[in-house]
Structure formats: structure tokens, C-alpha cells
């Protein structure tokens, strides 16, 4: 399978730069983060879409809100997305709403069992493959050896694909003082279908690392991604996550860096 390169779409403000990236054959798809703002139409960009969402709390004991899931399903059906990206997360304590950015669940047996139930129902509802992704980690797991083991276990149980967010993974390893390659062995490599790559920043405490889509990926993340692109047997997509408010110059620098990593594995399909 040829490898494709894409960018995350969050906001219509990105349309112009995305259009230019497509013209320059730097991208093959956009990964749209649903639900999208009222009145926006990324499908009108005439570029293939990978459906993604940060709005389903797949680990919640309350289950997944059908109103949100329906919007994502409709978009994925309309764009014929080959899979739907979902985060292993909570959003709050109620059946709807979000208290802020995604909340990492407790990585315990109970939550794994609930997550497996939720994801299997979502998969059936979508009638389409699901790819699971972890957020950046700060706190040590209390039930599993690590969050990566939790992800690997749920993916195996429900038979899902996996999005390996290289930046989130490395943030977790740095924050928990683990080796660079810690945890990868917990995930069946044949399940990893997509990589996410973005910037990260060191907090003002000079101790903890955070996701930073406004920055370019650092050299270590790019180096790890390069090796993963060589090694992962089922990898089909590499997505660059870059903030709509970050500089356009950086957007193109990042995209070229990622294109350089893919080498001959990418088939350039853009116009």
C-alpha cells in the first residue's frame, strides 16, 4: 500500500494554504476533525478526506453521545473515509459536554472493559473501521503497565486500527521519564495505520512537555517517525497537525519535512 501524506483540518482559515499544498503535490488528503464549524465546507476543497474526531468520549461510562456520533458517521459516509479516527478519552462526567481538552481516562481494567464496549458499538454504528489514538500523557497508569498497553489491549479486543501520534507518545515518554521507544512493543504493528506528527513544547516549569500544534515537530520526533515509516508494515497515512493560526511558512516547512521522510513510499496523487 502506498503511503499518503495529509494535514489536519480544523478551520476554514486553513483552506487557502491547504489548496496551495495540494497544488504543490505536498498532500494527498485532509484529516477533518468533526464536528466542523457551522457554515464551513472542507469537502468543497475537492481533496480526499480522512474522518477524525476529538468529540467522542470513547472511554466514558456514560457511553458516546449519539448526536455527535451521527454527525461523524454522516461525514465519513459522505466522504467515504477509509476509517474514522477516535481518541481514547473522557470529556467530563456527564453523557454530553466537555470540560476542556480531552481527559485521559484511568488506565484500569474497568475502564478498558467500558471502552471496549463503547468502541465496538461505535464500530457497528459507523459500519466502518475505527482507528484509536491516545492523548499526551502526564500521569502514570494505575491498572495497566502503561497507556500504550491499554491502547494495544483495547485495539486487539475490539479489532481496531491504531493511530500512533508520535508527538503524544514522546510527550508521555518524556513526562514519565521513560526511554524514547518505550511502549511501542505493546501495540500490534499490523494495526498501526496512521501516524500523527506535530510540535511540542517544554512548559514554563522546564519539566513537562505539552502538545503544541503551533510549532514544528522537533528533530527527535521526525527521526522516530522516519524509522516508523520504514518499519511499520500496515502504515497508510501520515498526518501533519498544524494550528490554523500558526505561520503559513512553518506549515510548508513542516509538510516538506514530512514529505522528505516518506521517500519512495509515498505515491503523489495530487494535481
Amino acid at each position: 500500500m502506498d503511503l499518503r501524506v495529509g494535514v489536519r483540518w480544523d478551520d476554514p482559515a486553513q483552506n487557502e494554504r491547504i489548496h496551495r499544498a495540494q497544488e504543490q503535490c505536498l498532500i494527498d488528503y485532509i484529516e477533518v476533525n468533526y464536528p466542523i464549524p457551522f457554515g464551513s465546507n472542507p469537502h468543497g476543497l475537492d481533496i480526499p478526506v480522512l474522518a477524525h474526531t476529538s468529540s467522542n468520549p470513547t472511554c466514558s461510562a456514560e457511553g458516546v453521545n449519539l448526536n455527535i456520533a451521527r454527525r461523524i458517521k454522516e461525514a465519513a459516509d459522505e466522504t467515504n473515509s477509509p476509517w474514522i479516527g477516535e481518541h481514547l478519552s473522557w470529556l467530563g462526567t456527564a453523557p454530553t459536554g466537555s470540560l476542556g481538552y480531552q481527559i485521559n481516562p484511568l488506565f484500569t481494567d474497568e475502564i478498558a472493559a467500558v471502552t471496549a464496549l463503547n468502541v465496538s458499538r461505535l464500530k457497528e454504528y459507523y459500519d466502518r473501521p475505527i482507528a484509536l489514538e491516545l492523548g499526551p500523557i502526564y500521569i502514570q497508569s494505575t491498572g495497566y503497565e502503561s497507556e500504550m498497553h491499554f491502547l494495544g489491549s483495547v485495539a486487539n479486543e475490539v479489532d481496531t486500527k491504531v493511530i500512533l501520534d508520535v508527538t503524544h507518545w514522546q510527550i508521555g515518554n518524556r513526562n514519565l521519564e521513560r526511554p524514547i521507544d518505550y511502549g511501542l512493543e505493546a501495540i500490534d504493528p499490523s494495526r498501526i495505520i496512521e501516524l500523527h506528527i506535530a510540535g511540542m513544547r517544554l512548559g514554563s516549569d522546564q519539566r513537562f512537555w505539552h502538545d503544541a500544534h503551533e510549532l514544528l515537530p522537533d528533530a527527535e520526533v521526525l527521526s522516530i517517525a522516519s524509522k516508523l515509516i520504514e518499519d511499520l508494515p500496515a502504515l497508510e497515512a501520515v498526518t501533519f497537525e498544524h494550528s490554523p493560526i500558526a505561520s503559513e511558512e512553518d506549515f510548508f516547512v513542516g509538510l516538506r519535512q514530512i514529505n522528505d521522510l516518506t521517500g519512495n513510499r509515498r505515491s503523489r496523487t495530487a494535481a
Binding site: A61, T93, L99, L106, T108, I111, A113
Partner: peptide
């Protein structure tokens, strides 16, 4: 299972 998980979720959050 959900009831137990719901309580853990509420406390941790």
C-alpha cells in the same frame, strides 16, 4: 460495570 466505572470517572475528574 458502567456504574463502577462511572464512579471512578467522577472521582478522578
Amino acid at each position: 460495570l458502567r456504574d463502577r466505572a462511572r464512579k471512578l470517572q467522577a472521582l478522578h475528574i
